[in-house]
Each structure stands twice: as C-alpha cells, then as structure tokens.
Design a protein around this nucleic acid. Sequence first.
DNA 1: TGGCAAAAGCAACGAGGGTTGCCTTACGGG
DNA 2: CCCGTAAGGCAACCCTCGTTGCTTTTGCCA
Lengths: 199, 199
Amino acid sequence: MNTQTATTPATHDAAQTAAAAAPARRTGGRSALVLSAVRAAVEDLVKERGAERVTVPMIAERAGVNPTSIYRRWGDLPTLLNEIATYHLDPARPLPASGDLRTDLLGWATEIIEHYSTPVNAALLRAGAATAGDTESDCLRNRRAEATLFVERTENAAVTVDQVIDHLVAPIIYRVIFLPSSIRPATAERLVAELFDRG
Amino acid sequence: MNTQTATTPATHDAAQTAAAAAPARRTGGRSALVLSAVRAAVEDLVKERGAERVTVPMIAERAGVNPTSIYRRWGDLPTLLNEIATYHLDPARPLPASGDLRTDLLGWATEIIEHYSTPVNAALLRAGAATAGDTESDCLRNRRAEATLFVERTENAAVTVDQVIDHLVAPIIYRVIFLPSSIRPATAERLVAELFDRG
DNA sequence: TGGCAAAAGCAACGAGGGTTGCCTTACGGG
DNA sequence: CCCGTAAGGCAACCCTCGTTGCTTTTGCCA
C-alpha cells in the first residue's frame, strides 16, 4: 500500500518511450529494503539536525546505501524530502464527519496539531516553507481543500473557508514553524472557540 | 545612519582582546561602498532566485567584490541574510499610537503587510522560517514584543496578546509564506474586524 | 601630509557534493 | 529453473564552496 507510490520511474527520457510495452517495475526485495532504509534515515537525520542541514551522502551513509541509488531514484534532495513529507497524513484518509461543522473542525485541527507534533514533520514543514511561494506546497493545498470540503457540505455555515484558513490553519502552522514549544492539543479547542464564538 | 550597525567586527579572536584600546573601526569610503554593493546584490539575487538558491560567491560577483571580503565581514551566509532581513523594519521605528487599540493594530498590521509585499522581504521571511525552531527569529520576536506593547498599554483591552498573534500576525505571515498572491492591504482590515467583532 | 593598521584583493588549497560509466546483484516472468 | 533487465554498488571525475596566508589598497588620526 505504500511502496508503489514512491517508485517514481525518474523518467529515463528516450530509451523508454521507444518500447511500447510496460517497463515492468521491480518493487520487492532489495528495492523495498532500500526504500524503507532511506525513509528511516531521512526521518532520523531531519529530526536530529533540521531539514536544511541534511545532505544526500549523509542520508546514504546512515541508510547503509550508496548515494548513487538515492540520486537515481529521487534525483534531488528536495524531491526526496517532499516524498517523505507527504508520505504521512495521507490525503485519502477518512476525515471527521460528525454532521456538526464545529465538531468536525475541532477533530481536524487536533489531528493536524498531532501530526506536526512529531519533530520530523515540523522540520519538513519548515523546509517546505523555504521553497514555498507561487507554487503552494502540496501539503498546505490539501489542507485548504479539506477546509473547503468541511464548509461547503454544511448548509448556512457559520464560517467561511478563508476564516478557517486564517484563524485555524494559519495560527497552527505559524506556531509549529516559529513557536514549536507553544503548541499543544488544547490549542485546537481555543482556536475553534475563538473562531465560532463571535457576534 | 545605517552603516555602523552592520560593521560587526566578526570577532578576530585573540590578537584583539590583547590590545586594551579601541580597535578604531573604519566605516567610510571603500568599506561603505562594499557594504552597500553587497546589500544591493543580496536583495537583487534573493528577489530573482529565492533566498536558498543564493550563494556567497554569487553575491560577491554581482557586487563586484571579492568573496573573501564577504566571508571575513559576515562569516556566514545566514548571518548576512539575517543582517539584510532586519535592516529594514527597524525595531526602533515609531509605532502607531492613536490612543485606540483597534486603530493602532490596524495601522500596525497594514505596515507589516506592506513590508512583506516587497519580494525581497517575503523571500527572506521564508528563509528565516526554514532555520526557525527553538530560537525564534529576531524578526518575529520583535512582532510579539510590539503586540505586547499595544495590548498592555490599553486598560481593559478587548483582546489578548495571544489572540493578536494567532488572528492577526499568524494569518499575515502564513499568507506571505504560502499564498503570497492573496495578500493585500485590505486584508488587514478584514482581520482586525474579525479579531474585534466577537461576542 | 605622512604613517599605521583596517579592510579589500588575490591565489592556491582542501573538502564535500553531485554526476557519469561500468559492473554486479537479484527481482520477476516465463 | 533460467534468462532478461531493473536497480544497486563502485570508483573516478568535476565543480563549487569556503578557508587561509599573503599582498595591496586606503581610511583615519596625529
């Protein structure tokens, strides 16, 4: 359930478009071993040293793998980090659906906070922030899509999507990035309360 | 008015602590020229390529200066970027003081938005986010200090410092980092309204 | 105006990251 | 069980960053 998403072919340009048949991927045994070893190494190193002090050779050594394998499979350090970052918090996971918007948003916000409580995920978020800009990161775009879903399936919703982004997502992400020690599950409750209890 | 703050001595270890007298800095003429050339080069390059795709040799070439000069003066690329980042938005600038908290916060938020409307400042903020974590960046700590000032000088303030951070600063910073095209001066008005108009 | 020393320039070096060509291993289908 | 080939390992390479010792320029003060 998790291996094939990462086995991006790295697009071998010509050579491959010529052959009409499927190239017959190879996902088991050693490849899978390398994959998980690299993932584990990335998580360890990112947690230990922060995402921007990590290099490919460093990861390779920790994983007991040759650097070339990483370059060939992912091609790029940012690509690798992105792959790890979006690996958890699956976009297809079940979302809260209690029927009440406020309850759903509370559960959702709590989930996000828990996700970023792991140092790895927090560090990867920071790394993503650095390369953000016009091309909004996958991770945050997914959050916006989810917020839209919550609001739009509710009749006469008391809040707008923008308000959810500005007063629920933004404070959480802001604190994760800049004030990591200030964030705890209870923060979700306070933010949701402040979002809804208005004139 | 601006040259001497940047002339950090780079701490020449021993050699200098031995001499009791002041080392007699040298701030004018060529040094000042190099300083401003480097600053301009950094701003250009950061604006063009994003902060994390900029290197010291690159800056040196653009500025028509030897890389060694940069390394000796600043020692470090992050240090240099930080120096540029805090160069504007002077922490000693006059803050709004109308007597009304809401008016002050509106002016203040507008000021912050305008500041980060410049691509350079936005890019530097993103770079700062990457290296953030436990050691909260100077830039954002200053914002928190200012928010505290506003709230604490007001009797029976309608909002808390945390609320200002969560619902005014956080949304602005979040949008600057991840949704730069969505931010405009009017955003300040909306956020302030949403911050104050509650039960 | 002359001299001291701070700061810039120059050149050579070491180190580490990323690339490439070639060989070895071992999936996966027959 | 066996072959074809995808994927990993190895080694040599180049390139660029950052450091260092030395020389040259030039700001500042007497």
